[in-house]
Write a protein that binds this DNA or RNA. Structure first.
Lengths: 341, 341
DNA sequence: GTGAAAGCGCTAACAT
DNA sequence: ATGTTAGCGCTTTCAC
């Protein structure tokens, strides 16, 4: 098993080990280890000499050996409960970003909502001695906690157990901000169109809008319209809405997809957006928000930041400073043509 | 460092090692190892006894120890050259799918098109002693090969070096199939609207359409219109097109986004799709293809299969059976309402 | 067919 | 401040 693969390119030389570095630098392996890891008490000159030797030989420490002796693998697991999609993707990237910058690597595990697969992956992660696990999922409904022997942080989809560490987005705050924006524009007859009430996201956003509208003295003109998370539903909901409330002048939507359908249908019915009706979306999904005519005012979720924060909290926990509880990250209202001309 | 973390849940017991299993089964550690890995010559009865002991203790072999002694980490790297997106995502999932099913884990590395980051990640992968690397990227332009000491397979975006192993999609074939479909429908005045000619994908698809149209005796009514990969360009291109060729009766598009813009604008101009003008997309991106009115006939790319195939080829190479050269995967024409009523 | 022993490459505790 | 020693958990010769 010496020089095997033909696909190699540059230096297919027997890998350099720390003993080689130590020998070249004229020190003991243990000393070389300390010098390179920055631990222990070494003369600066020695440290430098070892470092140069390592550079010269192109030494890349063997993470496997290190993991075995140190008990830390410098690797974390990233468990996505449903297939990575539009929502989880930025979370994944945020995690990778925050971790990869150090030298912690990320093991990707996709469970596809299958408990069997989840167990399999947790086993696999355990056997690889990961230092911690980030769990993420597309829905916001709290999930059953995973059982692991290492710290776990939940990103976007929180754990049902409150003392676990979760990082979520302030959906209610975002929904309220969008509504406040509409009211500040002088709109008085606002409706809310959103997705299935079986999703916590739809429920909490709708509740927040209803409450905020009521306490502003401008209750919604109709109860929230629940349907699918699709453009098609957005279009259909508009038909229902204008029949009931012909003079509606603002629509707050539960997603950008719905909002795009709403905008399209309003235009087809001869209503001008935003002059006749102002519309807000939710998610700030560029593909929808920017392609819409006019582009959508919407609530940005900063999913990337959710991932980064989760990664940071995980590293803290791995270092023995767990932070139980849920961190709620603020959203960000992005104002575009669907509310102001 | 015994029972440390507070975040754990179920069995925070000192991990079971193979010596424990061996002791319970009444054999030597080496024998237990053989029994569990299925190697060596053992009496079936012994093998079974060890297996039961392992089950009973809930033994999960330590991958780190195993990697160190066996030289194989049962882990591969997944290097995405540009941020994982709509195209690379299914590839990533395909890779994870094909690998995770066995017990090979996937280390996720996102380089964001930054050569420095790429080097950093390659180093990280090398230090973790991955058994191989899958490289993927959103563009189809061949890329500079990566240099690694382990087998590498390129997925979707091929390597510039032909003897490397690459898995790509038959874009030309897909483009030709879409055109053939339009011609079979009896359309005679076909145009092609696509993305920037700086993308290999736009160029090769356009060339294929031009050639196939010409050799079918139905040359395109205008040269391919190159622009952006956006709905907006699709809409604008329609305006240009109908001015030049008022009686155009089919449009082949380089992407679903463009196709959706084309369909929308045609409808706004009073042309019926597909009766007056038939339109084909490319990618089969559900968000666009299904939300379009009518839904798009389009070329499915089977990116998931690209990932799976790449993973399989990588495992072969890791096992000492490299398969140099490029594998071209077929596309799949999905017929919907934008070409047939 | 099974046991004993020697490492894989590194770090950490202890000696010096 | 540096060298020495003893493992981390597993696999893999090589004896028996």
């Amino acid at each position: 098993m010496e020089p095997a693969g033909p696909a190699a390119s540059a230096g297919r030389t027997r890998p350099v080990r720390i003993v080689d570095v130590a020998a070249l630098a004229g020190v003991a392996p243990g000393t070389a280890s300390k010098a390179l890891s920055g631990s222990g008490q070494l003369r600066a000159e020695t440290r430098e000499r070892v470092r140069r030797a390592a550079d010269q030989l192109g030494f890349v420490p063997d993470g496997v050996g290190r993991a075995l002796s140190s008990g830390r693998s410098f690797t974390v697991g990233l468990l996505t409960t449903d297939s990575i999609g539009r929502f989880t993707l930025p979370v994944v990237l945020g995690v990778e970003d925050a971790l990869g910058a150090g030298d912690v690597a990320v093991l990707l595990c996709d469970t596809r909502d299958d408990p069997l697969r989840e167990r399999h992956h947790l086993r696999s992660l355990a056997s690889r001695r990961v230092d911690g696990i980030v769990v993420t999922g597309r829905r916001t409904d709290p999930r059953t906690p995973v059982s692991a022997d290492v710290p776990v942080v939940y990103a976007f989809q929180p754990s049902r157990r409150e003392e676990d560490t979760s990082v979520v987005v302030d959906e209610r705050g975002g929904a309220v901000a969008a509504l406040a924006h509409l009211l500040a524009l002088g709109r008085t007859r606002v409706a809310h169109i959103t997705g299935s009430s079986r999703h916590a996201a739809a429920r909490s956003r709708a509740e927040a809008v209803v409450d905020a509208a009521a306490s502003a003295g401008r209750p919604l003109v109709v109860d929230p319209l629940h349907g699918a998370w699709s453009e098609e539903w957005g279009r259909r909901a508009v038909d229902l809405l204008v029949r009931q409330v012909p003079d509606v002048d603002a629509v707050s939507c539960g997603s950008d997809q719905i909002a795009r359908g709403v905008v399209d249908r309003l235009r087809e019915l001869g209503r001008t957006v935003p002059d006749d009706v102002a519309v807000t979306g939710f998610d700030d999904w560029d593909v929808m928000a920017l392609a819409s005519r006019p582009p959508l005012t919407t609530v940005g979720l900063q999913m990337h930041e959710v991932g980064r924060t989760a990664a940071r909290l995980l590293l803290e926990a791995v270092d023995g400073r767990p932070q139980p509880g849920t961190v709620v990250l603020p959203t960000h209202l992005v104002v575009r043509g669907s509310t102001v001309a």
